[in-house]
Structures are given as C-alpha cells and as structure tokens.
Computed example of a mutant assay.
Amino acid sequence: MGHRTVRIHHVGHIVENMTQAISLYERLGFDVPPPNCPAMPRREGAAPEPFGAANTHADFADSFLELATRVTEGDRGSLPADTRLVPLEAPAEVVPLLVERIGRTSADLASRLDRFQGVHILMFSSPAIDEEAERLTGAGVRHGGINTVRRAAPEGAGVPVETIRYLEIDGEGPGAGPGTVAEGRLGFVADLDPDVQGARRLDHPNGAVDLVEATLCVADPELALVRRRYETYLGRPARQQGPAHVIDLDGAALRLVPGSALATVLPGERPPALPAFVAYAVAVRDPVLTRDLLHRNGLPVRDTPTGDPFVPADAALGTAVVFRPAV
C-alpha cells in the first residue's frame, strides 16, 4: 500500500477563554467566525444555555486551525456574545447519551487545560480512512476504530450535511486511555470535502493559505522512541535536520524536537511540559506583509534560524505561531 496520509488535517488549540482567543487570532490576522456551542435548558421551560464545549475554526482549503474551550454552568461570560448556540435536538431516549458524550469532551478539555493552555490536538488527513485504519491495525497501533459524525454544512455548500469520519489513536502502556497519547489527542480524519470547505471563510488578512507544520517537543532520552512511534503512525521515515527529526508529508511536515534544542529551533521558547505540541506553522502569501500586520497589531515577533517570523507562545496563549512563505 502507498502512503495514504497526505497532510495535516488540523491542530486543536485549547484555550481558557474563547473571547480572548478569538481576539488573539484576529490580531494574528486570521478570519475566525463566531464559535458554536451545544445548548439545552437547565430546567423545563427555560431558554437553552451553553454547556460542554465550544469551538470555532480558522479555515484553509485543505486544513484548519481549531479553537476549543470547555464550558461550565454559568460560564457564558467566557464566550463571545455572538456565539451560535446549537440546541440538542434528538429523541428523548438519545439525549442522555449525547449529554454524556459532550460531558466527556468537556472533561477532556479541562484535563488538558490543567496541564497547560495550548495545542493538544493533532489530526492527520487521509484520502482513504478505511485503509488507514487497516494499516494502523496491521502495524500494531491501537485505535478506537472509525467514528462518523454529521453536522449541518455551511451556507453555500453543495450538500446540506457534512459527514466527518475519523479515528483516534490510543495511548500505550499501563493506564493509557483510549483516544489519547501522552502529548494529546492524535488521529486521522478523512479528507475535507472541497465543496463544503470552500463555502467557509478562507480569506485571511495575514495571507495564510494552509497549515504546513506541527512541532512536537519531547524529552531528549525519549526522542528515538517517539520518532519510531510517529514513523509507525504515519508510515513514513523521518529525516534529521539539525537537532530535529522531520517527517515529510505532502505539502506539510511534523517536526520532532528534543527539549534541549527547542530554543535553537524556536529562539526563546521553552516547553510547557514534555511531551507537548509547542508550535504550528502556516504558509502565507507574503511574509513581509504578514510581519507588518503582526507589528501593527502589537504582537511580538521573533525569527526562526531560517528567517521565518513567529509569535512566541507566551504571547499566543501557549503555542508559538510560525509564518512561512507559501511555495
């Protein structure tokens, strides 16, 4: 079987306050729509109130950046006023199951935030998700099988419903939970439907056109083990580039960096924990114009050793955001 993984599907930035996060992403130059959040009445006859988890995306043609936050009772103040509440509409016997699933998602977000605010989700794109599941099983990688969810497609899409098929990789070792590895939530998603994705907001003031890299920082003694793990996950070999190990995808890459070298790869950066997703990179049309926008919006800008501008993690809610010239 040939390589089935083609690119990074999305990264998930888990934040404490969605209003603050959207404001940051707008200053970074991304066009971010109002978040969605499930809602249900707290008592019979009352208006639906947000609960569980809220999220939104900064979208590109083949990938996106996700912002997600937990929502607790009475926590409406952390959500923007224009948050789109999505009432739970299901047969009465199904509602408790939906509430339980949403509650698990919220609890998972809370546990990630207890660790640190930042990127905790990395999903890869696959044009053949069923074959991907078979390949992972054959390679001895534990996962929860393929899940299917459906949601309303955005206005202007060619279909009324968007179907999402995905799988999550299970952790290894004693006490490892389903659907999560040490560094966060990791898995594979079927390629985005171009008709559906094209109906979303794709024109960003910073000129960003794609998500092209994720950086995972690991403890130095664990680097070889993590490299082998990701080579197995992705079915591709890693190459060494300075202190980092890079797994090339089609138009994207995963960069594995030992903790001792993070400040070399991203000057001034320190990992919040190990292992951790510490940065992602987007391709932009004109890095000079992007740099100017960042400065105008009052954000600090550093340079990678290759001259790419990036906003450090301490100014970007826990993750460094790198801007790279589009090829």
Results as ranks from 00 to 15, higher is better:
residue 281 A to W: 08
residue 258 P to A: 11
residue 267 P to F: 14
residue 302 R to I: 01
residue 251 G to I: 03
residue 296 R to D: 15
residue 267 P to S: 12
residue 264 T to W: 09
residue 210 D to C: 01
residue 264 T to R: 15
residue 196 V to K: 13
residue 229 R to F: 00
residue 193 D to M: 08
residue 265 V to F: 14
residue 269 E to H: 13
residue 176 A to G: 05
residue 252 A to V: 04
residue 205 P to G: 10
residue 292 D to R: 15
residue 226 V to I: 09
residue 181 V to T: 14
residue 275 P to I: 07
residue 265 V to Y: 10
residue 278 V to C: 15
residue 270 R to K: 11
residue 211 L to Y: 03
residue 189 V to Y: 14
residue 312 P to C: 00
residue 180 T to M: 02
residue 199 A to R: 12
residue 218 V to K: 09
residue 184 G to S: 09
residue 278 V to E: 02
residue 228 R to K: 11
residue 266 L to I: 13
residue 232 T to P: 00
residue 202 L to M: 09
residue 232 T to N: 00
residue 263 A to M: 10
residue 176 A to V: 01
residue 261 A to M: 13
residue 257 V to I: 13
residue 317 L to A: 07
residue 297 N to K: 13
residue 178 P to L: 07
residue 222 E to V: 03
residue 298 G to Q: 09
residue 250 D to Q: 08
residue 196 V to H: 12
residue 248 D to E: 14
residue 270 R to Y: 15
residue 250 D to P: 00
residue 225 L to D: 10
residue 305 P to C: 12
residue 270 R to Q: 15
residue 211 L to M: 03
residue 206 N to V: 09
residue 190 A to G: 15
residue 304 T to M: 06
residue 298 G to N: 02
residue 273 A to G: 11
residue 236 R to H: 00
residue 200 R to A: 05
residue 242 G to V: 05
residue 255 R to L: 12
residue 193 D to L: 12
residue 187 G to V: 03
residue 242 G to R: 01
residue 304 T to N: 02
residue 190 A to H: 15
residue 316 A to F: 04
residue 218 V to L: 15
residue 293 L to I: 07
residue 270 R to E: 15
residue 256 L to F: 10
residue 187 G to K: 06
residue 229 R to N: 02
residue 189 V to F: 12
residue 275 P to G: 09
residue 210 D to M: 06
residue 303 D to K: 06
residue 269 E to S: 12
residue 256 L to I: 07
residue 280 Y to C: 06
residue 182 A to K: 13
residue 294 L to T: 07
residue 281 A to T: 11
residue 198 G to D: 08
residue 229 R to S: 04
residue 249 L to H: 04
residue 299 L to W: 10
residue 315 A to F: 10
residue 313 A to Y: 02
residue 264 T to Y: 06
residue 258 P to I: 08
residue 207 G to C: 09
residue 213 E to D: 04
residue 220 D to T: 12
residue 217 C to Y: 04
residue 259 G to K: 07
residue 286 D to H: 07
residue 297 N to D: 06
residue 246 V to C: 05
residue 205 P to V: 09
residue 229 R to G: 11
residue 199 A to T: 07
residue 266 L to P: 07
residue 178 P to A: 08
residue 181 V to G: 01
residue 224 A to N: 03
residue 186 L to K: 02
residue 248 D to W: 01
residue 302 R to P: 03
residue 315 A to C: 08
residue 294 L to Q: 11
residue 309 P to W: 03
residue 189 V to L: 03
residue 204 H to Q: 09
residue 287 P to E: 10
residue 226 V to S: 09
residue 212 V to L: 04
residue 198 G to M: 07
residue 260 S to N: 13
residue 301 V to Y: 01
residue 216 L to A: 08
residue 297 N to H: 15
residue 253 A to F: 01
residue 200 R to M: 14
residue 236 R to K: 05
residue 306 T to R: 13
residue 314 D to T: 03
residue 199 A to L: 13
residue 288 V to W: 11
residue 277 F to H: 13
residue 213 E to S: 05
residue 300 P to K: 10
residue 245 H to F: 08
residue 180 T to W: 02
residue 251 G to D: 03
residue 233 Y to C: 00
residue 259 G to Q: 08
residue 179 G to H: 03
residue 230 Y to C: 02
residue 220 D to P: 02
residue 245 H to P: 00
residue 203 D to A: 07
residue 255 R to F: 08
residue 295 H to E: 15
residue 262 L to A: 10
residue 274 L to D: 04
residue 272 P to E: 11
